[in-house]
Amino acid sequence: MARNPVLTFTDRGIYCPDGDFFIDPWRPVDRALITHGHSDHARWGHKRYLATHQALPVMRHRLGQIEAVGIAYGERVQIGGVTVSFHPAGHVPGSAQIAVERQGEVWVVSGDYKVEPDGLAEGFAPIRCHAFISECTFGLPVFRWQPQERVMAEITRWWAANAAARKVSILGAYSFGKAQRLMAGVEPIGPILTHGAVEEITAILRAQGYALPETVRAVAGVDGKTHPGALVIAPPSALGSAWARKFGPAEEAFASGWMAVRGIRRRRSLGAGFVVSDHADWDGLNAAIRATGCERVFVTHGYTAPFRRWLSEQGYDAGIVATEYGEEVEELPTEGAA
């Protein structure tokens, strides 16, 4: 008799019948396993949460009073008829892939992930599995990232050129993950100022022990005069706003994987855009899937149709799962965090 699959796809999220829990559900459920603290994955209203110890502080900050239990990377817990473990996804600090095992059959939910180590998030670890549920935000071959140190050097050069022209550099980046990765990755050639939304998360992560440089919260009175040649890190929505103008003469840029496409950068009428993403690029997606050794792949969250077809041409049994994660608009400046 054929058994039901380890994970099923419902209108509330990915569900494990044998363990009676959901992974990153988007409607309120009884028990939710959460891959990471971005708002499209860690939603409000579940009864019980399970996430990595590293992910919980930001989740608590964002979701307020929640009933949550922490788990260590690699630790195995039994839930109902399955064994569950969390493994680094390399996406943002505390982010995880979730592996669910039932009698030797392993399914892995990737959450959001990135293959290249960024020096801040726990490095991506490939997990051998039978079925892999993979995001594919950037699942087209036009998305291929340069090595991080090269982009960071580009950003540092931009910052230095602006500083030499007596201008402040305002860099738009997601307040959780991208912002901290950038401040840790650029060369510290001047003061780093932060928008309140960025500073709050930065303080939480710093307190957790992540190595982050000194930052100054850009409260009233902090500007290009008090901190000449500063780098300001702010949520994308702050670019071009009245808040950004208070710094005086400035250049603005946006750091996102979408900046790889010239047309998208121009839509924001931004001069500078830096291609920095916390998601896997085309090569990264393919390498990650290969490393799982899986036969079945379910793609979600991005360019699902072409990516599924590509995978099935590569010999995978590939399907599409509709989810309510960020989808195509993820990481767009008009959106919240990804």
């Binding site: 087209l140 036009v142 291929r144 496409v261 047309g263 360019y303 072409p306 590509w310 041409e313």
Partner: peptide, 22 residues
Amino acid sequence: PLWLFEESYAMVGDLAETIALI
């Protein structure tokens, strides 16, 4: 495959840029 190129082109919207990117 050519179809994947076409999907990429549809997203980028510019032939010269699509080729440069892939």
